[in-house]
Design a protein around this nucleic acid. Structure first.
Lengths: 217, 217
DNA sequence: GTCTATATGTTGATAGAC
DNA sequence: GTCTATCAACATATAGAC
């Protein structure tokens, strides 16, 4: 066991969505898809993607269901936007780690660090990503993109093991799974406002525990 | 990122449920709730609890929806049975670790070992447990039981830190979350028949990486 | 761009015959 | 203990007025 996931709190706007800023002629103000997406993703993470109805999502934005459909054509399209944002960020971070000079172990440590940072900075979107199962076409395509990232991470581990910069007694793929399983688990308990540890403390902790384990300093 | 979850394969019986062993007078054979539960939980894990309809569950057992309702009164009752099985196993394992003589670090290592073993041995049930969100009363009660277990595990870490048997430079609660986040992540990729590593290899790996990290031996 | 109203299907759960 | 038939509630999505 680890930390028990609590329920994320939906941002303030949804509670008083009816009191949202209004444009001319009493009409609700217009929002970009990006702005709406943030409100929607909060509902996904609170209720679960499957359990969140389009009515729930519309209510969170302060729109009626129909107006909501004017901005998004389907629930799956919204999922696509959310996971793409997370996947793009993770891919970009991995690109940077891979391009780093120095030892293979340095690149691996950097990947652990950057991945943890993305997890924290893009928490709601990464959370949606990590919960995708594979029931629909969009979900399966999402899993495929994730697998490619996982394979690249496993490659970094293997490279470091081959250079004997890290231990070589455990299958690199298993090492990679366990390490990034630890990193990903941060999404289950990290909440921005909390005193569960600052961003800096969490990032340092994942890197240091990955490298040194529980050994006394 | 870590390992991308694949879709669990529903056991053979569900595919040819119509060809299941039959009792007298052409009627399907009777199954105990325990037997049925195994078939059901496989569907929960493939489709997700929310997405799995009672029709899906009934089909997996080879029963009609109505006959199915003769065995289980509601979907939530089934969830309760599944998570209880996982929680009971985890609690019992933790009891044993806590009762162990020796150092606090020994007890912690034992808890990591035993928790990993339960994860593997009770994989389908633990998987259901780890995905519970908190939308209904049963789910919230489940999260509460999980929290109690998490708190006990964090207690083991703190005890070892206070005895200076493990590093003391990171908040024990964060250490506990990361460690058991790593352990729990096994459920995302371990599949019984696979060559992703034997039970023994996985258990040794979680314990050893927790204790030593990536350091070369 | 928003709204009310509604089409169309699926959901969890039940009634009652055999 | 199984079945067929059915329910009310709710799902995603659309039509058309303003």
């Amino acid at each position: 066991m680890g930390h028990t996931p609590g329920m994320a709190t939906v941002p303030a706007r949804s509670a008083d969505a009816a009191a949202a800023p209004r444009g001319v002629r009493g009409r609700p103000a217009r929002y970009s898809r990006e702005e709406l997406l943030g409100l929607i993703v909060a509902v996904f993470n609170e209720r679960g993607y499957e359990a969140a109805s389009m009515a729930d999502l519309a209510a969170a934005t302060g729109l009626t269901k129909s107006s909501f459909y004017h901005h998004f054509t389907s629930k799956e399209e919204i999922l696509q936007m959310a996971v793409d944002r997370a996947l793009d960020a993770l891919s970009a971070a991995l690109d940077e780690s891979t391009a780093l000079p120095g030892t293979a172990a340095d690149r691996l440590a950097d990947a652990i660090r950057r991945t943890t940072e993305i997890l924290i900075d893009e928490l709601p979107f990464v959370t949606v990503l990590l919960r995708v199962r594979g029931n629909t076409a969009v979900e399966r395509q999402t899993l495929e993109r994730r697998r490619r990232i996982d394979a690249r991470l496993a490659g970094l581990v293997e490279e470091a093991a081959r250079a004997q910069e890290i231990r070589g007694d455990i299958d690199p793929r298993m090492v990679s799974r366990l390490l990034f399983g630890m990193v990903n688990s941060v999404h289950e308990w990290y909440r921005p406002g909390n005193r569960t540890g600052s961003r800096r403390a969490i990032v340092d902790a994942t890197v240091s525990i990955a490298l040194n384990g529980l050994r006394p300093r």
